[in-house]
Write a protein that binds this DNA or RNA. Sequence first.
DNA 1: TTTTTAGTTTAGTATTTTGTAAACTAAAAA
DNA 2: TTTTTAGTTTACAAAATACTAAACTAAAAA
Lengths: 155, 155
Amino acid sequence: MADTEHQRRELVEKIGVINEKIGMQPVAARVNALLQVSNHTMLTFDEIREELQVSKSSVSNAIAILLSTGQIEYFTKPGDRKRYFRSTMEKWPRLIDKLLEFAMNYRDIYKQVLAIRSDSDPTFNQSIKDLINFIDYVMETVSPMLREWTEKRNK
Amino acid sequence: MADTEHQRRELVEKIGVINEKIGMQPVAARVNALLQVSNHTMLTFDEIREELQVSKSSVSNAIAILLSTGQIEYFTKPGDRKRYFRSTMEKWPRLIDKLLEFAMNYRDIYKQVLAIRSDSDPTFNQSIKDLINFIDYVMETVSPMLREWTEKRNK
DNA sequence: TTTTTAGTTTAGTATTTTGTAAACTAAAAA
DNA sequence: TTTTTAGTTTACAAAATACTAAACTAAAAA
């Protein structure tokens, strides 16, 4: 178990890459990953900087982004000037919520597509209707599931 | 209803933007949108180029991408050199499938995170387990739903 | 009061992405 | 055989993104 550290770094890279795929900026993607993977749940600015080997401004910028999107938070300790950053992973239901919102966006847009299209290709139009219905069905199934999950966790 | 054409263009822009958000290149995003919104289900290279006001190489490139990802297809007419491009929207279940695959990726990665993390923060670890279970549950619910949908369509 | 700490902001550079014009190509038409 | 059509490829330009080093700042410590 000597090179767990190596595996940990690989995992940060891996999560970094998939975070980038969903539109996160590279350094932010890795800071977010690091705070999820590290055993020290709370890391300081300089620990992050040290681990990821990037500049102060990059860390500063990444932290600003992640704080503003609520993906990390920080705590302070009395008599200590540093901020201790922490992933808000526990709030993953909020991320799922955003995903569902995105799906609703898609749904609404395809409603508009349907409204504007003529009947020249009924099969095509029907498939759009199917997609809309599918999204509706997923929403109806997943939404309450998510709510239940959240409530269970909160009590 | 004189300026339906205007609305149609706005819709192409709107879909273009949300397509970009999921990682599609700008022109490809709009070509894809155009083929979904246009009443003429099939459009030629030059009609696309004309409508979107972009260069030949941009259209050529966008079409290559969309063909390779299976988001559009084309047909030819005997005695006509042009290709007629068409959205493969009807195959939206394949896109959902890819989404589910992506979710599985996430799930597997968080399994790895769990395996590498110590027990120093059990609450944090539990929330990762919750996420994994949630993804599993969604998979179990949505996957068969999707299969059913597809089978219904195919017969 | 001066210095140190913990960052933030600025100004500039490197890289990547997106797009264009124009040269090129292969097949069909004349 | 020559020309036209329907694109593709190449070579380059413009713009956006992602950094960095270094100057700066505000609060706490000495």
